[in-house]
Write a protein that binds this DNA or RNA. Structure first.
Lengths: 162, 162
DNA sequence: CTTAGAACGTTGCATGCGCATCTACATAGC
DNA sequence: GCTATGTAGATGCGCATGCAACGTTCTAAG
């Protein structure tokens, strides 16, 4: 079952995938995990803020009236509804976010960014941007960045939203 | 820290990052998370195998004598040592892997792929390859794949190993 | 109006992970 | 040889997450 790249362009299994292609996928996985971890530890060390928390604050700060419905927010930060419930619990406990009822739908709640949350976000943002720049953007030139964007758009046509 | 100014006309913060660049990063995050989740649920549904478990089996199958030191394996699958200890516990309980002492270093252990593990891997591999192909490889053409590989190599020069 | 079904958010539960710590062994310095 | 430091792997613990189930509220069919 060892994947020996004997046949150059040949299929190595039912998937018709060359070993070079597989390597690209593995590299992508490794790169993404490693960059994300570096970013997260930066935020944790310098601002005691998890990456998921940063994402929530960031999304809220860009939303109209600094508020989003729980469901909507969960989708944007790629969390399950229950996961977001707990995360908002923590952020609310820390005073960075608060819940507000929704007038038009009694089932719904808004997560609203507080002033303290906006401040915390502003403090952490330089760290976040620096991390992305040094680990990702600086390494690629303008052409590569365009190519990257094009590929990502093909991979997930709706990924550009938000 | 190297400031290789990406020459962005509309720098938006202390990090000198344009909003387009930030969007690329967000898209990358979203794409990676979503592809990984789809892949994982495929494996879980069809073979009751987590992605991390698949990675372990896969790495072992490619290693000489189907065995790797715990430490080495942990690095390859991007897991902490304790995380790998528990994962190998589970795989061993399921008979897919077993631990063997290391002759040259009494502290060390090998994780060894069993025949049952190799079989399970063989069963799951078509699902895995199909997922990567349909969600990733099929979407990109040969040029894009080369560009992708080039970028990843720049991002992590050592990411190509294994 | 009534009722069935869907949607929103929360909760119980199980899981999987990382950090700090521990023990056993290895290696360098004396 | 003997001690000090480092390394391999396991363990206690806490935390974050997802799934399934629940109550509440909205919506559509009759």
């Amino acid at each position: 079952m060892t994947v020996t790249a004997s046949e150059s362009r040949d299929a190595i299994g039912p998937g018709e995938i060359s070993s070079e292609e597989l390597v690209v996928w593995r590299m992508l996985q490794r790169a993404q995990v490693r960059i994300t971890r570096l970013l997260e530890t930066d935020l944790l060390v310098e601002h005691d803020l998890a990456l998921a928390s940063y994402d929530v604050l960031s999304q809220l700060s860009e939303a109209p009236e600094r508020r989003l419905r729980m469901n909507d927010l969960a989708e944007r930060v790629l969390l399950s509804r229950s996961g977001l419930t707990r995360l908002i619990d923590r952020l609310q406990r820390d005073g960075l976010v608060q819940r507000e009822a929704c007038a038009s739908d009694a089932r719904g709640l808004f997560a609203v960014l507080t002033d303290a949350g906006a401040l915390r976000l502003a403090e952490a943002t330089p760290t976040y941007l620096r991390g992305i720049r040094t680990r990702f953007l600086d390494v690629l030139d303008a052409d590569e960045l365009r190519q990257c964007a094009a590929m990502l758009t093909k991979l997930f046509p709706d990924a550009a939203e938000h």
